[in-house]
Nucleic acid binder design. Structure first.
Lengths: 210, 210
DNA sequence: ATCAGTTTCAAATGCTTGTTTGAAACAGAA
DNA sequence: TTCTGTTTCAAACAAGCATTTGAAACTGAT
């Protein structure tokens, strides 16, 4: 029987590998990342990758899964049954942006997601089905209510895309933002400010939709 | 003295290299792209890359430059001096979306841009200053007029971001869209439909901004 | 026909990569 | 201690890569 502390020691190199791998995969992407850089940064031997995980690909899969599980635990206030559609829209934007940009979330997790978006791997399919589609359904319901169900499905999708795209912009296009307005690189708007803006912007637009 | 046709023949392998390189770089990214695949697809010898260009990196630089120049020549109707701010906003969205999604534009050009967004190279800085910032200024002026100049610069930026982000979404997050709504992968909305939607959505939101 | 310059090519070179290996270090049990 | 299973490690391996090379093919001019 092993004490928790001893298990932690035993699995120390495994944990260090996972953390280092997250950083390096995010910085360089899967193919440009080398197991040598990962193991050096983790302070372990190269062979540790093949011992604790089967190979580089398996290491990546585990990193991505950890990333996803970790992001589940954060987010803004959950919507309540009795809330109005307006409030639930705000909750949605709030939760989504917190998921994407929360400072407690290691920066490399957002980068990994962005990479999956331009160079999709098999992991993206799983991510969409398990995590993104449920979120998407929530938003569809909200928009359906806000528009009184008078619009076609296609138009509802486009409204949903307009909401989501504003959030994703601050995750995916940060390099663009920082080059256009260097000031924002130093003093970025708070997540609360972004939520407030995107909620107001989208609500006005959805209300006007017909 | 050489006839134009003869020059074309002489530089044939160079042109074929550039075209094949554009495709392969976009499909695989710079590092995953191999000189061998590029030269095979172009039907020329491996050494041609080092003869016509110094190396793989120089080939990439030239491809990116060609891509940028080519995209300048297309776009929707230019705004006219006397147009209202509303019309100029539509022109902006139209021109921007055409630039990003025009079917005549080889698909790999959009992909290359998306790649620059998640893995910026030096080329991105040049691109922002030469092409994106001027466009951005146009939009700022339009928004300034639409809001009567009553908002802070920061709020004007956020409104501009909300407009631009909706356009970029269809360029950057296509893998997401196609997985969420497979129907849209087969029968995507026309650019005109997107312009109509984004213009209406944004205009209503900007008008409501205060 | 000969020549000089340009362009192509097959083969080889040297480097980096992911992965394997076999020995060594370590831990707990008998 | 001795034994057994686990974990680490330095070194080596095999494959893939960009790049080089030197000869061959081709071009237009002399």
């Amino acid at each position: 029987m092993l004490a928790a502390a001893e298990i932690a020691v035993i699995q120390d190199t495994r944990r260090r590998l996972l953390f280092a791998a997250g950083e390096v995969f995010a910085e360089r992407g899967f193919h440009q990342a080398t197991v040598r850089e990962i193991t050096e940064r983790a302070g372990v031997n190269v062979a540790a990758v093949n011992y604790h995980f089967r190979d580089k690909a398996e290491l990546y899969r585990v990193v991505l899964k950890e990333c996803h599980c970790h992001s589940e635990s954060m987010g803004g206030p959950m919507p309540v049954e009795g809330d109005t559609a307006e409030d639930r829209l705000r909750c949605f934007v709030d939760a989504f942006l917190h998921r994407l940009l929360h400072p407690d979330r290691p920066a490399w997790q957002g980068l990994l997601m962005a990479r999956e978006m331009t160079q999709p791997t098999d992991a993206l399919d799983a991510l969409v089905e398990e995590c993104i589609r449920p979120c998407s359904r929530d938003l569809e319901v909200i928009i359906h209510e806000l528009t009184g169900g008078k619009l076609s499905k296609d138009r509802e999708w486009m409204l949903a895309f307009s909401v989501v795209s504003q959030c994703l912009f601050y995750l995916h296009d940060r390099p663009l933002i920082e080059r256009l307005y260097p000031k924002l690189a130093i003093q970025p708007p708070t997540i609360e400010q972004l939520v407030e803006h995107i909620h107001a912007f989208s609500l006005a637009a959805i209300r006007a939709a017909q």
